[in-house]
Amino acid sequence: MAMAGEKGRGRWFVIAVPYLWLLALFLAPFLIVFKISLSQDVVAQPPYAPTLDLAQGWAGFTEFLSGLSFANYGYVLDFSNEFLEAYGSSLVIASISTVLLLLVGYPIAYGMARAPRSIQPTLLMLVILPFWTSFLIRVYAWIGILSPEGLLNQGLMALGVIDTPLEILNTNLAVYIGIVYSYLPFMVLPLYAALEKLDLTLLEAAADLGCPPSKAFWTITFPLSLPGVAAGALLCFIPAVGEFVIPDLLGGSDTLMIGKSLWTEFTVNRSWTVSSAVAVLLLLVLVVPIVIYQNIQQRELEAGK
């Protein structure tokens, strides 16, 4: 390790500044969310109670503790309030979308990895470019295409394929299209990275020994690309579970997703405490995939050394 000998103020400074920043602005807020999820809504500023009054010393602290309750979790976990359904349907929508993303993304990444070396950087650039343009714009573009008088329906009707416009906008199908479209670069890039590293001589050896290409794919290429599959799937699945913009703009009123429920709870019902409880439970659902994702990334980093 080149700079390991460099034990000094410089080293601690470089570690401490981003560390403290993230502790204060990323980790501490989660503790606050947890605390507020145990509070109750009040009409005041801030709109929740109890608040910790340190001026009162120990008495203030015990009073604060006794004011906390799990009532919001009871509310969120009550079947009649649709939150549980929203968690379930978010997980289903995110899982189906991830499978669709794999089915769409794998052939693209595979084709890119097999393309001549000279055009690979251009292809890579073309996959990344849409990712740089606004997410909101890319979702918006689909409204104009999928609406009943939209371009897709006009095109299909002009061709005589259908007589009446298809209802796609404001359905779950539109949500799937939106998620697959928006997250595709996140799926293609890790897959491409894994497939591009693949040693082609392995496939040549398999072919020389009489292995048919399809069998070679399933016994060599696919297993070796699994780290890319896992990274891509998690990179799409985790944010998709909490997706808000896509179900809000493309989905219908019956599209239940927990990100949308949280947003509505916060902006329409203005209940900060219930939104916090929804956020804590969502985080609990996602903690396992997030830890797996972090471990994969960490292993990649160690392997690069």
Binding site: L235, G259, L262, L282
Partner: peptide, 12 residues
């Protein structure tokens, strides 16, 4: 804390 924000749902 470096990797979690990359995938953390924005609403959270």
């Amino acid at each position: 804390m470096i990797y979690a924000p990359l995938v953390m749902p924005e609403v959270i």
